[in-house]
Design a protein around this nucleic acid. Structure first.
Lengths: 340, 340
DNA sequence: TTTTTTTCTGAAAGCACTTTCAGTTTAGCA
DNA sequence: TGCTAAACTGAAAGTGCTTTCAGAAAAAAA
């Protein structure tokens, strides 16, 4: 009852066609040396029987699987979705198929071990290579190539596509400072994530460059979620001397800032300027000024790099730097000098 | 050079531990009858060697794979993304992993054949069951269970989760008519998609119920994309006697309507009321009144149904009807009677 | 101590396929 | 017609694993 009909195998096809398995396999793989009429006959029978080759068995024998693995922490995040869009586009243009792997529970267990596990699981089995998003590991043991998108470590042991996080953060701060803001709040990203650290560094350095004293009280923790963004935005805005602008480490936190501002009756940008990071699709609708990381393009490039590696080619660049760009919308405003 | 190191296999582990492969396999699968110290020793060696079992080889022998396949037309669509979110949540709560399959090229080739192909590919190989989104086929040949989300056919041969498209459409129309709208434009969905047809039927029937003559000129084709929504919205709005409201078959088309309205200098809702369908995340930001299909919940429920089937249980309901709900936002307004 | 039971282990078959190797036809050419 | 090359096909080995079967060692019972 449990496994209903047995799947139709290559043997069934062979028997029906009156040839040997090897012959069927040959027409399946487009190999030479099989008479065109036998070929047609076999193809017809395959159609009739509705045969599909067993992925498992096939990948066991042959090295070429035409399958790329994608390991993503959580497909629900806008961040992941953006990257997936780019990956999808590159896949569509290639002759590879996509195998997305997720356990959906990064929150629960530390990622590191699992990443390694999934990468080997896929690469040692059914994929020709894998793309890993936001990986924490500095090294991977795998016998097929991998490419990382936005890894936590700056100089990983594997090829990667990275955004210019430090630069982007610097640019945001120069923009804000240029608008006259002096008290700028910063809502951090997840501590264990490399890019979050680089954005914080950019914040600090820009302040120093402009000769503004760093007020530690304006830097809050964070974890890239809207909820926590909201929480710390409230905290910042309730300060006796609140910031005139808030720079959130990503767009989702920035959305949390919007929420807190609205609740406290503050208008954006009149009473508070807000900047995010990532440029997820929601940002456009909110008029959120943010830094475009070109996440989709990062996914796209990663697939192209991986396909090269699978083909045995060498990469010109081991780490591809995707240039960030400040996207000005309506969430920021020149600071009107108030009398002190 | 191409396949660097050979992956570490169960044999390597066995050799290192000085036992036979079968023993290693037994500890791997948590079977009884292996001395606890041998067990510990083997486990340690597995850790040292970084062994991961070969998915392909494993799924060839055993029926239980703890893997669920998800076949999605295009992961870039907000529609797909919503469903994926729900699937992801259900997966996280289960002890299954997700294998997302997409070729990314539904546009190019008719979907039907490919769907069948992917479903068998997955189900005859590495997955315990698959969920297929927006499937066109009425029947599937597969030896593992499948569950469809929003299939094109109303009464498919397989279990499915469906929205109440007709009902939702009716509700929209009653709402619009209740606001005094008489000339209501309809931008259709893709013709080959069942739910699109049901929404159109709802549109027509609601008009008939209200005793309003159907003006065929107010019904345009469509394909669920923003671009085509824009195109036909323009066409509708340039009519000598344009509609006062437009009901788009999905939110993305509705966004196209917004675009067209803005371009023609029409304010929403003052000059034009707009309703969509789906309630994708963008809808909230646009203030788009729409019908919530609870796509994420549909994905969630589908996974739960599938897991039951995999476990050999029977379903109470072969087709789960997810009740739609009108979400009122700010894109509609009572029609102010203009003098004719 | 002998017999029975329990615990533990390994050999080998089988899963569905690809690929190598060798063998049989058929065609090409003198 | 005979000989060589090309075209075609099948048997069988091998891929990494699980599982059955049976046998050995240890523990328990007699």
């Amino acid at each position: 009852m449990n496994h209903k009909k047995r799947a139709v195998t290559i043997q069934d096809v062979a028997k029906a066609a009156g040839v040997s398995v090897s012959t069927v396999s040959r027409v399946l793989n487009g190999k030479i040396d099989v008479a065109s009429d036998t070929q047609d006959r076999i193809l017809a029978i395959i159609g009739d029987l509705g045969y599909t080759s067993n992925l498992a068995a096939r990948s066991m024998r042959s090295y070429k699987k035409n399958l790329i693995g994608l390991v993503v922490p959580d497909i629900g995040f806008p961040y992941s979705i953006e990257i997936m869009k780019g990956v999808n586009r590159a896949i569509a243009e290639s002759n590879f198929d996509l195998l997305l792997y997720t356990t959906g529970d990064i929150q629960k267990n530390g990622t590191d071990l699992h990443e390694q596990h999934y990468v080997s699981l896929l690469n040692n089995s059914i994929t020709d290579g894998v793309i890993i998003v936001a990986s924490a590991a500095a090294e991977f043991i795998t016998n097929a190539p991998i490419v990382a998108v936005d890894p936590h470590v700056v100089n990983p042991n594997y090829p990667s596509v990275q955004g210019t996080n430090y630069h982007g953060s610097l640019e945001v701060m120069e923009y804000l400072i240029g608008q006259g803001h002096r008290r700028i709040g910063f809502i951090s990203g997840r501590q264990d994530v490399g890019s979050a650290g680089r954005r914080l560094k950019g914040y600090q350095d820009a302040l120093a460059n402009a000769g503004i004293d760093l007020d530690e009280g304006l830097i809050t923790p964070g974890d890239f979620t809207q909820k926590i963004g909201y929480k710390y935005a409230r905290q910042l805005l309730k300060l006796s001397n609140p910031p005139t602008a808030i720079f959130a480490a990503n767009d989702q936190s920035a959305i949390g800032v919007f929420e807190a501002a609205e609740e406290l009756g503050l208008r954006i940008p009149e009473d508070l300027s807000v900047v995010g990071f990532d440029n997820i699709s929601e940002a456009k609708y909110l008029g959120l000024t943010t830094v475009d990381q070109f996440l989709a393009d990062m996914g796209y490039v990663a697939v192209q790099m991986l396909i090269k590696l699978i083909g045995g080619e060498l990469l010109e660049l081991e780490t591809y730097k995707m240039q960030t760009k400040l996207v000005e919308r309506t969430s920021c405003q020149k600071l009107i000098q108030t009398a002190y």
